[in-house]
C-alpha cells in the first residue's frame, strides 16, 4: 500500500522533533561496531561503488576532468575485481566532456546546478542552468536549496523551488543539497529533508563541500531517519548522499553501518546511497590492497586525480 500525496503537508508541523544528544549517543553506538575480515572487504568495495568522484574547484580544467573520469573507470589498475565508482560530479561546463569521456562505462555524470554553492540567483537562471546540464547529458542534478529562505521560515518557497527544479530535471535524478552546515540545528536538517522529499527529491544530500562542517554522522543519521519515515508513509525509497569531510575508509564504513541499521540492506546500493568525496576513493583502495596483502599501504602507490 502506498499513500499518494494529494496535498502539500504543513511543514511547520510535519517533522518530528530531534534531540541532539540522543542522536549523538546513537552515532556513538554505531561507531562501536567492529567490522573485520570479509565483512570489511565487502564494505570497502561497496563504499567504492558508492563514491561520487567529485571535482568542484574554480581552477578545474578539461584535463583534470578527463583524469577524474579515467580514475572513475579504472580506480586502481593493479586490482582486479573492484567496482567502478557510481558517478563523476562536475560543474555544468564540464558535463559534456565528462559524459563523452565516460561513455559506455555505466558511470553517471552528475552536475551541480542552481547557482551552486550559494544558490543566490534568480529562479529563472537556476532552472535554465538545470536544463542546460540535462541537455549537456547530465544523469544527475545536485541542486542547492535557498538556505536564506529556509532560515526565514519560508518553507513553501523551498518546496516550490525543489518541485520546479525536479520538473526541469526531466528524467535526470535530482539530489537536493541542504547545506546542513548552514542550517545549524538537527531540527532544521530534519525539516529540510522532509520538505525536499515531499517536493520530489530522489536523493537528499548534506553539503556542498564549501561550508564547514560538511557531512557529519549526526546530520546523516537524522536524514536517514527522515528517509525512513518517508518510506514508511509513502513506500518511496529516497537516496542519501553525505558529501564532504568523509576522507577515510574507516569513517565510510561507519556511515554504511548507520545506513544498514537505520534503513536496512535495501539502501546498501549505489542507487540509494552515495558518498560525495574526492580523496575517499584512494583510501578505500589502499585499505582493499591492505586487506588483500596484509601490508599497510602508502599513498604514493595510488594515483591522485
Amino acid at each position: 500500500m502506498t499513500q499518494t500525496l494529494n496535498e502539500i503537508p504543513d511543514f511547520k508541523t510535519l517533522s518530528p522533533r530531534v534531540d541532539q544528544v540522543g542522536v549523538e549517543e546513537r552515532v556513538a553506538r554505531f561507531n562501536t561496531r567492529s567490522i573485520k575480515k570479509d565483512s570489511k572487504m565487502y564494505a570497502l568495495k561497496l563504499a567504492l561503488s558508492m563514491v561520487d568522484l567529485t571535482t568542484l574547484e574554480g581552477m578545474d580544467s578539461p584535463g583534470k576532468v578527463r583524469q577524474l573520469c579515467y580514475k572513475a573507470m579504472h580506480p586502481h589498475e593493479k586490482l582486479e575485481d573492484i567496482p567502478k565508482v557510481a558517478a563523476v560530479c562536475v560543474y555544468p561546463s564540464f558535463v559534456r566532456l565528462a559524459k563523452e569521456t565516460l561513455s559506455g562505462s555505466g558511470i553517471n555524470v552528475a552536475s551541480v546546478a542552481t547557482a551552486f554553492p550559494s544558490g543566490w540567483a534568480p529562479m529563472k537562471a537556476k532552472l535554465d542552468e538545470v536544463r542546460y546540464c540535462v541537455d549537456e547529458g547530465a544523469d544527475e542534478i545536485d541542486m542547492v536549496i535557498s538556505r536564506g529562505e529556509f532560515l526565514k521560515g519560508n518553507y513553501g518557497y523551498i518546496y516550490d523551488e525543489v518541485a520546479a527544479v525536479k520538473e526541469a530535471c526531466g528524467s535526470a535524478h535530482l539530489k537536493v543539497i541542504l547545506e546542513t552546515g548552514e542550517l545549524q540545528t538537527l531540527d532544521n536538517v530534519r525539516r529540510a529533508s522532509d520538505i525536499s522529499m515531499y517536493a520530489g527529491a530522489d536523493f537528499i544530500k548534506t553539503s556542498t563541500g564549501k561550508i564547514s562542517p560538511a557531512a557529519t554522522q549526526p546530520v546523516t543519521l537524522v536524514m536517514l531517519e527522515a528517509i525512513r519515515d518517508f518510506y514508511y508513509k509513502t513506500g518511496k525509497k529516497i537516496g542519501m548522499k553525505p558529501a564532504g569531510g568523509i576522507r577515510d575508509a574507516k569513517l565510510a564504513i561507519r556511515y554504511l553501518v548507520m545506513v544498514k541499521e537505520t534503513l536496512g540492506i535495501d539502501w546498501l546500493d549505489p542507487d540509494l546511497f552515495r558518498f560525495g568525496a574526492s580523496s575517499l576513493a584512494n583510501d578505500l583502495l589502499m585499505q582493499i590492497v591492505k586487506q588483500q596483502t596484509g601490508a599497510y599501504q602508502s599513498l604514493d602507490y595510488f594515483s591522485k586525480d
Binding site: K36, L256, K260, I265, D266
Partner: peptide, 18 residues
C-alpha cells in the same frame, strides 16, 4: 499491518569480532 517494512536480513553481515 505494516506495508512498508525494512529489510534487515541478508546482504552485508558483520563477521565475528571477538
Amino acid at each position: 499491518k505494516r506495508p512498508n517494512r525494512l529489510n534487515f536480513t541478508g546482504g552485508w553481515n558483520y563477521d565475528p569480532a571477538p
